[in-house]
């Protein structure tokens, strides 16, 4: 790895949370942008899953508009899951993760940076594609914007919770399937509030409560998940 841990500034780093986040984020972004094909494959997976549902159910517009938000959300869960098993795998294999855990940098901050990079490379593209894909599902314009906003708030939670699962299943046989089994039940509230926000708008209510709850979930996950994920990383390295 060109951007190895040695390139990190070695000055007093106790409590240097933000530099640690920024360093890990920049490093992981640099690495994942090197393999653009892989990023493209994840997005293609998302688009194809979304495309399959109308073919499996009906081209009827009112029904499509009813199932559309749910389909986009489920596809977002699966697409985010697909790349999660690689979140720590390469760093674990070449020993970088161990270096990170031993370094004076706070491990939760480094883990946060990696999770942020995961969201920027998988979550954000999903959000940006959502307006386009909701056209396939005959969603009205306001429903489309609410769906995009909900995905914008919700997909970081997917990456945060997924980070815990990825760390727990690090280096295990059948890790990918196990990861899905562990993480998907935890995604249930995000799915409900995320897809529910669009349903509320379509039913003539405000999506405010849904989005606020998603936002509250994001705050809780932001505060808690990096510590749980860092603890899980330490467990995996023992």
């Amino acid at each position: 790895m060109a951007a190895s841990i040695e390139s990190a500034p070695a000055a007093s780093v106790q409590g240097a949370v933000l530099p640690a986040v920024a360093w890990a984020l920049a490093r992981d972004l640099k690495i994942s942008l090197r393999s653009k094909a892989e990023l493209g494959i994840q997005l293609l997976f998302y688009v194809i899953v979304v495309t399959l549902f109308p073919l499996a159910t009906t081209p009827e517009r009112s029904l499509l508009a009813a199932i559309g938000p749910g389909v986009l959300w489920v596809a977002a869960l699966l697409a985010s899951l697909l790349s999660l098993s690689r979140l720590f795998a390469a760093d674990h294999a070449d020993g970088t993760l161990e270096q990170m855990a031993l370094s004076p940098w706070p491990l939760p901050a480094l883990v946060s940076g990696k999770i942020a990079a995961h969201w920027l490379t998988t979550g954000l593209p999903i959000v940006l594609l959502a307006p386009l894909l909701s056209a396939q599902y005959a969603l009205e314009r306001d429903a489309m914007w609410i769906l995009t906003a909900a995905l914008l708030i919700g997909t970081p939670i997917l990456s945060l919770l997924g980070g815990i699962g990825a760390a727990l299943t690090l280096g295990l046989r059948g890790g990918g399937t196990l990861l899905a089994l562990l993480v998907l039940p935890l995604y249930v509230p995000i799915l409900i509030f995320g897809a529910g926000s669009v349903d509320a708008v379509r039913a003539g209510f405000s999506a405010g409560p849904h989005l606020s709850l998603l936002g509250a979930g994001l705050l809780v996950a932001l505060v808690g998940a990096p510590f749980a994920a860092a603890a899980a990383v330490r467990v995996a390295l023992d």
Binding site: L161, I164, L168, A228, A231, A232, V235, A236, D238
Partner: peptide, 9 residues
Amino acid sequence: KACSVLTLV
């Protein structure tokens, strides 16, 4: 430890 973390989450 892994199961403990998962159970608490």
